[in-house]
Measured scan of single mutants.
Amino acid sequence: LQLFIKTLTGKTSTVEMEPSDTIENLKAKIQDKEGIPPDQQRLIFAGKQLEDGRTLSDYNIQKESTLHLVL
């Protein structure tokens, strides 16, 4: 599924993920695209901070969801 990652600067990146992927996997993919180390990334979806060990489906993240990346 395609996700949009929006940064505080207003920049939006697109990443392709599976519902079974963990937040950790997602942060690794963001690191590949943006060069931001996972330990500096905080991802927010629906007002919640996402935890590394959980999966996208745990948070009911659907295709074309927008996640907010806070550093």
Rank of each mutant, 00 (worst) to 15 (best):
L1V: 09
L1C: 04
L1T: 04
L1G: 04
Q2M: 14
Q2P: 08
L3A: 01
L3K: 01
L3E: 01
L3W: 02
F4G: 02
F4C: 05
F4A: 05
I5M: 02
I5S: 00
I5T: 01
I5G: 00
K6R: 11
K6V: 14
T7G: 10
T7H: 14
T7F: 15
T7V: 09
L8D: 11
L8H: 13
L8S: 14
L8P: 14
T9D: 14
T9G: 13
G10I: 03
G10P: 02
G10E: 03
K11E: 10
K11T: 10
K11Y: 13
K11V: 10
K11F: 11
K11D: 08
T12C: 11
T12N: 06
S13G: 05
S13F: 15
S13W: 15
S13P: 02
T14C: 08
T14Y: 11
T14P: 05
T14H: 08
V15S: 01
V15K: 01
V15L: 11
V15R: 00
V15M: 09
E16F: 15
E16P: 05
E16I: 13
M17I: 11
M17K: 01
M17L: 07
E18F: 14
E18T: 10
E18L: 14
E18Y: 14
P19C: 05
P19T: 08
P19N: 07
S20K: 08
S20M: 10
S20P: 03
D21F: 03
D21S: 09
D21V: 03
D21A: 10
T22K: 08
T22G: 03
T22I: 04
I23E: 00
I23L: 04
I23Q: 00
I23Y: 01
I23M: 03
E24R: 14
E24M: 13
E24N: 08
N25H: 13
N25L: 14
N25S: 13
N25P: 01
N25F: 12
N25T: 13
L26T: 02
L26A: 02
L26D: 00
L26P: 01
K27N: 01
K27S: 01
K27V: 02
A28V: 11
A28P: 00
K29M: 10
K29E: 04
K29R: 11
K29Y: 08
I30P: 00
I30F: 03
Q31M: 13
Q31S: 12
Q31N: 09
Q31R: 13
Q31D: 04
D32L: 14
K33Y: 09
K33D: 06
K33T: 12
K33W: 09
K33E: 08
K33H: 08
E34G: 05
E34S: 12
E34V: 14
E34N: 10
G35T: 03
G35L: 04
G35H: 06
I36C: 04
I36K: 03
I36N: 02
I36R: 03
I36Y: 13
P37C: 06
P37D: 07
P38E: 07
P38T: 14
P38C: 08
P38W: 12
P38F: 13
D39V: 09
D39N: 12
Q40W: 10
Q40S: 09
Q40C: 09
Q40Y: 10
Q41P: 02
Q41L: 09
Q41T: 05
Q41C: 05
Q41R: 02
L43W: 06
L43S: 00
L43H: 00
L43G: 00
L43Q: 00
L43A: 00
I44C: 11
I44H: 09
I44P: 00
I44K: 05
I44N: 05
I44F: 15
F45T: 01
F45A: 02
F45Q: 02
F45K: 02
F45H: 05
A46I: 06
A46S: 08
A46R: 14
G47W: 04
G47L: 03
G47I: 02
G47H: 05
K48D: 06
K48H: 11
K48G: 06
Q49W: 14
Q49P: 10
Q49Y: 13
Q49A: 11
L50R: 00
L50C: 02
L50P: 00
E51V: 07
D52R: 04
G53A: 10
G53K: 11
G53H: 14
G53D: 10
G53S: 11
R54V: 05
R54W: 10
R54M: 12
R54A: 08
T55I: 08
T55C: 04
L56W: 02
L56Q: 00
L56M: 06
L56C: 00
L56P: 02
S57H: 09
S57T: 08
S57N: 10
S57K: 12
S57W: 08
S57R: 12
D58I: 03
D58A: 06
D58G: 04
D58H: 12
D58V: 04
Y59Q: 03
Y59K: 00
Y59C: 01
Y59P: 00
N60F: 08
N60W: 05
N60Q: 08
I61A: 02
I61S: 02
I61G: 01
I61C: 01
I61N: 02
Q62W: 08
Q62L: 11
Q62H: 10
Q62I: 12
Q62S: 11
Q62T: 14
Q62K: 12
Q62C: 05
K63R: 12
K63P: 15
K63Q: 14
E64F: 15
E64N: 15
E64K: 11
E64W: 15
S65T: 09
S65I: 05
S65R: 03
T66S: 05
T66M: 08
L67G: 02
L67W: 02
L67F: 04
L67T: 02
L67H: 02
H68I: 15
H68G: 04
H68A: 06
L69N: 00
L69T: 01
L69C: 01
L69W: 02
L69Y: 02
L69E: 00
V70M: 12
V70Q: 08
V70S: 09
V70T: 09
V70K: 07
V70D: 06
L71N: 07
L71D: 06
L71W: 11
L71F: 11
L71R: 09
L71S: 08
L71H: 07
L71E: 07
